[in-house]
């Protein structure tokens, strides 16, 4: 039995975006993340999938420490990441790193690749030969050593992302958050980055929290997948099981919407369900199950009661498959 390296328990993150009224000022809040729980196992890639407004990036930013949770907790190897108002200790920062979506913004245009890669070494590894380390980091991401002297704008999008990955590796972390690391890139370049990430994971025994909106990509990288919709998780399962037997109507809608390039894939897409409706604004989340306005299998109860997570026996056997939908209530 593998243990969880990262545990998210009932995490909530609300943002106050303004105030209503003039005399009695009621805060207007966005429930970006509204009570989610999951665990990432040692050495696995946990995929978090969602569309815009689902709160998947908020989960990433909270985990890395850019936000504090409104409620709930995130712990790393059993140790809480938020200890009062204290700054996160360096020892934990070293273990958890992040690769952002847009390498154009995550690499400082005024700093050379060498300077960018030296920073984590300066902070975390004082004794070693830095130049050697920088060369080794570039090697790890398959870039030639002379890239040290270059500046980000001289590199292509894929190469920039490789530098961002090298920077994340520089602290010698055990857990990396990948926030849509390839969605700004072309497919032909995406493939290389993905394979690099998989290789690095095996080589350094890394655990990934992989955030994306691309289910097809998820199928190829994740060991387990969680689907988010408007700040809540609606389904979690092992990747293989998940794509064979999606339960939640939203998951099915998502799957049926994916453009695919072969007949075999076409067969995996649920046929009976087609995408309808708009994604509601997270400021104004529908009551009950937040998906009920778009749901083709809506029951009367759906508009009133928010369903809870229930475990369903996966058809592939031992795989744990949980879903949050009234269709699979206590009776199921």
């Amino acid at each position: 039995m593998t243990t969880d390296i990262l545990t998210v328990a009932d995490l909530k993150k609300y943002f106050v975006i303004g105030h209503s009224g003039i005399l009695k000022r009621e805060p207007i809040t966005v429930k970006a993340v509204d009570g989610i729980s999951f665990g990432v196992r040692e050495g696995e890639t946990f995929g978090l999938v969602g569309e815009s407004g689902s709160g998947k990036s908020t989960v990433a930013y909270t985990t890395i420490g850019m936000y504090r949770p409104t409620e709930g907790s995130i712990s790393f190897r059993g140790r809480s990441l938020f200890d009062g108002n204290k700054e996160r200790p360096l020892a934990i920062k070293k273990e958890i790193q992040i690769v952002f979506q847009d390498p154009g913004s995550s690499l400082n245009p005024r700093r050379s690749i060498k300077q960018i890669l030296e920073l984590p070494l300066q902070v975390h590894r004082q004794d070693e030969n830095r130049l050697e380390q920088v060369v080794r980091l570039l090697e790890m991401v398959e870039l030639p050593p002379d890239y040290m002297q270059k500046y980000p704008q001289m590199l292509g999008g894929g190469e920039k992302q490789m530098v961002a990955i090298a920077r994340a590796l520089a602290t010698d972390p055990s857990f990396i958050i990948l926030d849509e690391p390839t969605s700004a890139l072309d497919v032909s370049i995406q493939a290389k980055i993905i394979n690099l990430l998989i290789r690095l994971q095996n080589e350094f025994h890394l655990s990934y929290l992989f955030i994306t909106h691309d289910l097809s990509l998820m199928r190829n990288v994740a060991s387990r997948v969680a689907i988010m919709y408007l700040g809540k998780i609606c389904e979690v399962a092992e990747a293989a099981e998940f794509f064979r037997n999606p339960y939640h109507p939203y998951t099915r809608m998502l799957l049926s919407s994916i453009p695919v390039i072969s007949e075999e894939e076409e067969k995996l897409k649920p046929k009976k369900i087609i995408s309808t409706g708009e994604i509601p604004s997270p400021v104004n989340v529908p009551t009950g199950c937040s998906f009920h306005l778009r749901c083709p299998a809506k029951l009367n109860v759906c508009s009133e009661v928010d369903p809870v997570m229930v475990e369903i026996e996966g058809q592939t056997g031992l795989a744990r498959h949980t879903v949050r939908c009234h269709l699979y209530g206590q009776a199921g």
């Binding site: 850019m66 958890i96 992040i98 952002f100 847009d102 913004s105 400082n108 005024r110 902070v123 975390h124």
Partner: peptide
Amino acid sequence: NEFFVSSAEAIGASKAHIIFREILPNCI
């Protein structure tokens, strides 16, 4: 709000580093 500042924070760089080495060069 640029992600290179977030990255430096995630790494654990000092505030002085972030202000004078990451942000200042972009204001020159």
